[in-house]
Nucleic acid binder design. Structure first.
Lengths: 226, 226
DNA sequence: AAAGTTCCGTTGTATTTCCAACAAAAAACG
DNA sequence: CGTTTTTTGTTGGAAATACAACGGAACTTT
C-alpha cells in the first residue's frame, strides 16, 4: 500500500498534505488500487456513480458509446488526473459516461462519501482536500470548455488547428505527441476518420505541419495568431 | 442591500446558510449588485478573471466571439446560476470567454478571493460555501458534458434531438420554451441558422414536433428512446 | 518468417451543410 | 397605425463532410 505514496504526493488532489499525514488520510479513505489493460473498461455507463478515480500511470479516456458502437471521446486523462469526480460530486445517481484505459494503466479508486464525510482525526486535511477538489473541478471545467472550442469549429481544419495549437501551447513548443490514434482523434473531434486523415495530408502538403503516427510538428507561426 | 436576501436564500451557493448568518456573510463578501440591458456585456473576454457572478433575474449567455463577429454560445445561465466561477476557482489570470445578458438581467458580482480567504467571524460558513461550490462546479461540469453530447452529433437533426430531448427531460414534459432565438440556438449547436430552420421544418413536416418561436412541443415517443 | 491484425492514407460518390439572397411574419417604435 | 427592425423560413448552388471500399505499412502473434 505504501509504495505508491510518492505518486500520490504529486497528485494535485492531495497537494499540501505531507508524508505521515497523507498516510493517515489514506488509511481513512481506504482506496482501491487497480491495474487495467489497454481498452479495458474502468467504469461503464449506467453504473452507480459513487466513486472517483485517480490515474497513477498510463492514461484513460472518458467516452460514450451508442448502440451501434459509435464512440465519442470526451476527454483524455493523464497521470495525476481525476475521472468520474464530477458525477459523484454533483450527486448523480448513475454514470452518463464510460471510462476506459487508453493504454496499460494503474488507477486508484476512492469512495467519494469518505472524502466529504471524513473521520474526525483528519479534519484538518479535510478542508484542504475539498479546496483542492474545487480547483480540480474548475480546471476540468476549463478543459471541457476548450474541448467545446475545438468541436464547434465549423470545419475539420478549424477543429484540427484549434486542437493542435492547444497541444502545442501545453507542450510549450510545436513538437509534441498526442494521446490519440487517428480514429480516437476523430472520435474526439467528432469527425470522420478518413476525412481527418485527408485534411491532415492537405495541411502537410501546404507545409503547415509534419506528422507521423501520433507525433506532430507544427510549422512556425501557426500557434501564434496575430 | 437587504432587499435581495430572499433571492440569495434560494441560491444554491448559499444553501444551508440562514437569515442573519447570510447577512453577516454578505457584509463580509461585499458583493456588487448590477442591472444589465439585453445584450449588454457583463464580462469581456480577456479581462482579469477575479470575480464571479450570480444571476438574480433574467439570464446570461457565456460566449465567444471571433474577429469577424462569429459567435459561439457555450451556455445559458438561468437565475440562481453562477458564471465565471470556473476561471476564478482555477486561478486563471484572464477570462477566455465573454458573458452577456440574454435579456434584462440583474446580477451579483463577488470577489472570489473573499470567498476563499474569508474573515474569521464567518469561518463556520466558509466550509459550507466551499462545499456548495464543489457541487455547483460539478453540476456545471455535467452541463458542459451534455453540451458536448449535443454538438458532437454528426448532423443537424441529431444535434436538435439531443438538445430538445434534454430540454424536455428537465422540463418534465414535451412542452417547453427554450432560452434561445433561432440564431442563438444555431450559435449554441454550432450550425448554420438557415440550415437549422430548414431541418426544423422537415421535422415538423414529419410530425416529430411542433414549434413557434422559442416554444416547442415534442411528439410522444421522441424523448423516450427504447 | 509467415500469417493475422490493426492503423493509416487515398479515392470516388452520395449526402449534408454552408452560404447568400430573398420574402414573409412578427416585434419594436415613433 | 404605419414604418422600421428583427426574426424566421425557403430556396438553389457551392463547398465540405460522411461513407464505403481498398491497399499498404506497421505491429503482433505464433
Amino acid at each position: 500500500m505504501k509504495k505508491f505514496f510518492p505518486i500520490l504526493q504529486n497528485c494535485r488532489l492531495f497537494a499540501g498534505i505531507e508524508g505521515t499525514d497523507l498516510e493517515k488520510l489514506l488509511r481513512c479513505l481506504s482506496p482501491l488500487r487497480r491495474h487495467y489493460k489497454k481498452n479495458e473498461f474502468i467504469f461503464v455507463m449506467g453504473e452507480i456513480a459513487g466513486s472517483l478515480g485517480i490515474v497513477l500511470s498510463g492514461g484513460v479516456h472518458v467516452l460514450q458509446e451508442d448502440f451501434w458502437g459509435n464512440r465519442s471521446i470526451f476527454a483524455h486523462i493523464p497521470p495525476g488526473g481525476l475521472f468520474g469526480e464530477a458525477f459523484s460530486c454533483a450527486g448523480m445517481e448513475r454514470l452518463p459516461v464510460s471510462v476506459a484505459a487508453a493504454e496499460k494503466t494503474e488507477a486508484l479508486l476512492l469512495d467519494y462519501q469518505r472524502i466529504l464525510a471524513v473521520c474526525p482525526s483528519v479534519c484538518a486535511f479535510h478542508a484542504g482536500i475539498v479546496k483542492n477538489m474545487v480547483r480540480m473541478l474548475a480546471q476540468k471545467n476549463i478543459m471541457l470548455t476548450r474541448k467545446i472550442e475545438h468541436v464547434t469549429r465549423r470545419n475539420i481544419r478549424g477543429k484540427l488547428l484549434s486542437y493542435l495549437s492547444e497541444q502545442a501551447k501545453t507542450a510549450g513548443c510545436g513538437v509534441f505527441d498526442i494521446p490519440f490514434t487517428r480514429q480516437e482523434l476523430a472520435d474526439y473531434l467528432s469527425v470522420d476518420r478518413s476525412a481527418l486523415s485527408n485534411e491532415l495530408s492537405k495541411m502537410r502538403e501546404q507545409g503547415m505541419l509534419k506528422f507521423r503516427k501520433n507525433h506532430f510538428e507544427l510549422a512556425e507561426g501557426l500557434d501564434r495568431p496575430g
